[in-house]
Amino acid sequence: MATSFHQQPTEQPHTPYEIACAAVTAMGDQWGARPGPWGRTGHLHNADHTPFTVGVCEAGYLYLRNDELGESLHLPLSSTADLPTLGQAIANVIGELF
C-alpha cells in the first residue's frame, strides 16, 4: 500500500497481453498469445506448446518466464515503451530461456 503521493502506482499504457501479442508479431506465426487472469499477465506459446509468461514486476519492468523450466529474466525496458519495441525486445531474448 502506498504511504505517500510519490509511491502511488502509475497506470501502464499496455497490458502484458498486448505486449505478448506484439511479441507474436515480431516472432512469427509459430507463436501464439493468450491473456492471463485479471489482465495481469500475457502468455506466449510456441509450436511445441512451451509456455511463457509476460508480466510487469513491482518496479515497473517487464519480465519473461519460461513456465516449463521456471527460468525468468527481466527486460531493461519499462512497460511504457511503444508496443513494437516491447515485442521486439521479447523476441530478442526469448531464445535465452530455452
Rank of each mutant, 00 (worst) to 15 (best):
T15Q: 08
T50Q: 11
F98C: 05
R34Y: 04
G55Y: 06
L69F: 11
D82N: 14
G32K: 12
G39R: 09
G32D: 01
W31S: 03
P51D: 00
I90G: 05
A20D: 09
E58W: 13
H43F: 05
N92L: 11
G55H: 07
A81E: 12
N66E: 14
E58H: 13
Q30E: 10
P16N: 09
G70R: 12
R34S: 04
S4L: 11
L75H: 06
P37L: 04
I90E: 10
S79Q: 13
R40Y: 07
Q12M: 10
L62N: 04
A33M: 08
S78C: 10
P76I: 02
H6S: 14
R34E: 03
W31C: 00
R65S: 14
H49N: 12
N92M: 07
A59Y: 09
T53F: 02
A59I: 01
W31A: 01
I19P: 01
L62D: 03
L75Q: 02
H74F: 13
A59V: 02
A22Y: 00
A81Q: 13
A23N: 07
F52W: 05
P37V: 09
T15P: 00
T25S: 06
M27K: 01
R34C: 00
H49I: 10
P84A: 11
P9V: 06
A20Y: 08
A47G: 01
Q7F: 15
F5T: 14
W38P: 00
L44K: 04
P76K: 14
P9I: 09
A26Y: 04
I90T: 03
G32T: 09
Q8A: 15
E58R: 13
A89Q: 03
T3S: 13
H6A: 15
E68A: 15
D48N: 13
T25A: 14
A26G: 03
V24D: 06
P13E: 03
M1N: 09
C57E: 10
V54D: 03
G55R: 06
G32L: 04
G60R: 05
R65L: 15
L83D: 04
R40G: 06
P37K: 10
H43E: 05
L86F: 02
I94M: 07
M1E: 10
D29T: 15
A20V: 06
H6Y: 14
G36D: 01
I90C: 04
L69I: 14
D48T: 11
M1V: 08
A33D: 07
G60W: 14
P35V: 00
P16E: 05
P35R: 01
W38C: 05
R65G: 06
V24H: 02
G55A: 12
E71S: 15
M27F: 11
E96Y: 11
V56R: 08
D29W: 08
T50Y: 00
D48K: 07
